[in-house]
Simulated scan of single mutants.
Amino acid sequence: MSVSSRYRRAWEGFWGEAPEERGAVFWDAEPEITAARHLPLLEPHLLASDLPFVDLGCGNGTQTRFLAGRFPTVVGVDLAAAAVDLARRSDPGGLASYRRLDAADPSEAAGLHAEFGDANLYLRGVLHQCVADDRQPLADGIATLLGSRGRALVVEPAPAAKAVLMGLAREPAGPSAKLAPVFRHGLTPAEAGEDEVAGHLRAAGLTVLDGGELPLVTTEHGVDGRPLELPALWLVAGVSAPTGDA
């Protein structure tokens, strides 16, 4: 199974019209307040820090380039070819590599695993955007990419984030210039709750090793001028290490 054609078209359309300047996309916050905050949650659980590191749902590659300065091999993958093209243009020095990947397609996930072997993964705000029928296949793809040694850090907006986003959409002036494309392309933010995300990972044969809450910073700003933060949850998942393993 691969993701629905509607979902694929939505993301191609979104990234095809996304501005190239840094921070112009709603969730394209600086790595220092996104990936840099998230990595310490993952690092205590890594079995091998020298594994390839996959940024799944890399978008324009802002976080991917940050990760490339901290791990020996970093690959940014995205469902949308338009996102991959933008990520490559935004990385003229070739800090990371980028490719289109439908991780919900078993053959594509298996192909990437065959090429790179077990990998550690960063997944920020991807599962909650999937249509419901695509979430379990995507979780299965995550398990394939991790293999027996990889660990995944999954960061997703909490259900409470949806009320925040809907409130912004109902402002008298309408959604902001950064938020409007999300709704215009039919994307559905904050549709998956913590129990559902954890359930999909467990059904894929993974163990949820850790988790908690940490706000997800966006590039939008509130009336006080501070960056808008969405309630969010994080989970670390992987195959449980045998007793006595490091």
Rank of each mutant, 00 (worst) to 15 (best):
D134I: 03
D118H: 05
A114V: 04
G117K: 10
S97T: 15
D105Q: 09
G117Q: 07
H128A: 13
R124I: 07
A96W: 08
L101S: 00
E115I: 08
A96E: 00
D134N: 10
A104H: 03
S107Y: 11
L101V: 01
E115V: 10
H113E: 00
P106K: 01
A96V: 02
L121T: 12
Y98T: 01
S97G: 13
A109T: 07
L95K: 14
G125L: 00
R124N: 11
D91P: 05
R124C: 15
Q129R: 12
R100T: 10
L123C: 15
L121D: 14
A109L: 01
A104K: 04
L95E: 11
R99N: 01
D102M: 05
E108C: 06
L112E: 00
G94Y: 07
A114L: 12
H128D: 11
Q136K: 00
D91H: 07
L121H: 09
H128S: 15
D102T: 06
D134V: 10
S97M: 13
G94T: 06
A104N: 08
D133K: 13
A110M: 03
N120G: 08
E108N: 05
S107M: 06
A96F: 05
L127D: 09
V126W: 07
C130G: 02
L101A: 02
G125F: 05
R100Y: 02
E115N: 07
A96C: 06
L123K: 12
E108S: 08
D91I: 04
A104M: 05
S97C: 10
R135H: 06
R99I: 01
A119L: 03
G93P: 03
D134L: 13
Y122M: 09
L123N: 14
Q129M: 12
D91E: 11
Q129L: 15
G94D: 03
E108G: 01
G125Q: 02
S107W: 11
P106V: 07
L101D: 01
A109I: 08
